[in-house]
Amino acid sequence: MPIEFMRNVASLKGVCTVEEAEPLLEWLQDQQRAKVKLKECTHIHTAVLQVLLAAKVMITLPPEDPDLARWLISALRGARTPIAPPSSE
């Protein structure tokens, strides 16, 4: 099971598939201050991503996968994605 639910923290691991979306959504609906741990996550399905975005959930540990971290974190922050480190400016 790629998602482990512990009190108010959900831990996503490996590849999260579309089947995860519904349980995650149900769990989030019951949580006041939900957090997610993405450290060991390598990919999340669009449906799961959408649920995380809609819940404006807080991330405790970002994914170790640099590529996923780059797109996911900025999307979750509602900010935009960083490209490489900022230039000379």
Binding site: E22, Q29, T46, A47, L49, V51, L53, A54, A75, R80
Partner: peptide
């Protein structure tokens, strides 16, 4: 890359997890 909703975010209670709005 920007990932944005095509309509205002629904409340979690009303959300349909299998309806793509991104």
């Amino acid at each position: 890359l920007a990932i944005v909703p095509t309509e205002p975010w629904p409340s979690l209670a009303e959300m349909d997890a299998y309806h793509c709005i991104l």
